[in-house]
């Protein structure tokens, strides 16, 4: 039987990391073995007592002591309440949930495309790659509207030393790259020739990046996107995170692009134009 009751979580610390965003450190009370099995790209349900629960992704997965990090942007009631808390305050935790990114670096050349806060779910994976000296295998293109919208400032400094890491801004100042990640695809494909795409960001960016990658020769079955959906239970019961006949909390949030297309195309013909709109 599943248990929908949160476990106790301690807020250790937080610091500002991007506009309206904070980088939180948490500690799970009495971490368990399965906490260590958390994969980059999975998510957890954070309970702010008195307000409710919402899904967030890990920047770094829980370690032996139950410590983990998450980057959270202020969006509504729950995050307003979270941002008002202090170190030491008690929260609730359920997770890990869902499917993370595929981990198959060795023979592959992986392109990571992230937009705005979409860098957060990819952070654990980029960390792993940069630690394990897979720099030749992984490159990142990170887009944001303006520089204050960029997140994970400390991590990006570190990553830039280890792997090819392109940053691009919609409103760029002199000396900065301008445009969306897509605007730099020709250059990226010419230099690193990726055969795999991992993408997280606004749905329009992900679908655009996926389509452009297919045009550049990546197989749809070698593209992964991470979908955002409203979620309440995390265990495939509440029904909110449906994508066609699939629930993002069980089968996602990371979907292989061809499967995602099958889900939305085959059973959701009317959803496709909506996705392109956003």
């Amino acid at each position: 039987m599943i248990d929908l009751t949160p476990r106790k979580l301690h807020l250790l610390d937080s610091y500002e990391d991007g506009r309206d965003a904070r980088h939180f450190s948490f500690r799970i009370d009495f971490p368990q073995a399965h906490d260590l099995a958390t994969m980059p790209g999975q998510f957890f349900m954070l309970a702010v007592p008195g307000v409710g629960e919402a899904p967030f992704t890990y920047v770094s997965p829980p370690n032996l002591y139950g410590h983990f990090n998450a980057l959270i942007r202020r969006m509504g009631n729950l995050t307003d309440a979270l941002f008002a808390l202090r170190p030491g305050d008690t929260l609730g935790y359920r997770g890990p949930f869902g499917k993370g990114w595929p981990l198959f670096f060795s023979p592959r050349r992986v392109l990571v495309v992230a937009g705005g806060c979409g860098l957060a779910p990819l952070a654990g994976l980029i960390d792993e790659a940069s630690r394990e000296h897979l720099s030749s295998r992984l490159s990142v293109v990170y887009g944001a509207r303006r520089d204050e919208d960029q997140i994970l400032a400390r991590e990006r400094l570190r990553w830039k030393l280890a792997i090819p890491f392109i940053e691009t801004l919609d409103d760029a100042a002199a000396g900065q790259r301008r445009g969306t990640p897509l605007d730099h695809f020709d250059e990226v494909f010419a230099t690193v020739q990726p055969d795999t795409l991992l993408c997280c960001g606004p749905e329009s960016l992900m679908l655009g990046a996926a389509r452009a990658s297919v045009e550049h020769g990546i197989q749809p079955s070698r593209i992964w996107v991470s979908l955002e959906r409203r979620m309440h239970c995390g265990v495939g019961l509440c029904g909110h995170c449906y994508i066609g006949a699939s629930y993002a909390c069980l089968d996602g949030p990371t979907y292989r692009y061809d499967r995602f297309l099958a889900l939305t195309g085959a059973t959701d013909s009317c959803a496709a134009p909506a996705l392109q709109r956003c």
Binding site: C270, A271, C278
Partner: peptide, 24 residues
């Protein structure tokens, strides 16, 4: 039902929601 805190709504139109119900 599917509206996210950001304002993004994958099933924003009533027609999409009616379709979803019957597909389910």
């Amino acid at each position: 039902f599917q509206a996210e805190a950001s304002g993004h709504n994958p099933s924003a139109s009533p027609g999409q929601r009616v379709q979803r119900f019957w597909l389910h």
